[in-house]
């Protein structure tokens, strides 16, 4: 049967935790109001104090700061609620249910490029479907670019359909 792809943590995960805590906080405020009004505690109701301040011509600085913070947090919650959870791994070919992370592709490509003849150092970076291999070549090894392409292609064969670009720089003598 079809099982869901491996995904990153959804953007809504942390807003949901904070929203749950905010709900809890609001429940405390309402509970304190009820307790104060029903005479269970001796303190004044926080809610009544807050509503009494609505008659002021302007909000206090702290209320304004809290309002701006609420608007920004609300915007963050709203955006996060609609962001899809991105796929965390790439599916490999074959009947096996194999998934590899972008870091695997980068590590294998860097190692393959680094072992190509004439390469002193190599580093890879995967962005979406584009693999960029940066290589430092030994002096007089301009032809190593083709070897790098071949080595990287062979090493990643079957793992993912990628567009490979090699950026080579010759080391100074």
């Amino acid at each position: 049967m079809k099982v869901r792809d491996p995904r990153r943590t959804p953007a809504a995960a942390w807003p949901a935790v904070i929203a749950a805590l905010l709900l809890g906080g609001f429940a405390v405020v309402l509970g304190q109001h009820a307790a104060a009004e029903l005479g269970w505690i001796g303190a004044d109701s926080w809610l009544r104090t807050a509503f009494a301040s609505l008659d002021d011509a302007q909000p206090s600085v702290w209320v304004l700061i809290a309002g701006i913070a609420a608007a920004l947090i609300g915007l963050w919650f709203l955006i996060a609620a609609f962001l899809p959870a991105r796929r965390s791994h790439l599916p490999a070919d074959g009947p096996g249910d194999l998934w590899v992370s972008p870091r695997v592709v980068e590590a294998l490509a860097s190692d393959a490029a680094g072992r190509a003849p004439g390469v002193l150092h190599a580093h890879s970076e995967l962005r979406r479907r584009r693999l960029k291999v940066k290589a430092l070549l030994a002096p007089g090894n301009e032809a190593a670019v083709a070897d790098i392409m071949e080595a990287v292609g062979d090493r990643l064969d079957g793992l993912a359909e990628l567009e490979v670009a090699v950026q080579a720089k010759e080391a100074s003598r």
């Binding site: 709900l23 309002g67 608007a71 915007l75």
Partner: peptide
């Protein structure tokens, strides 16, 4: 998570906008 975050986000945005309008 998603629907509740969206609703609470909207409420926070409305509350913040009301204070800014105040």
């Amino acid at each position: 998570d998603r629907p509740a975050s969206a609703v609470i986000g909207l409420l926070l945005l409305a509350a913040g906008a009301a204070v800014i309008d105040w």
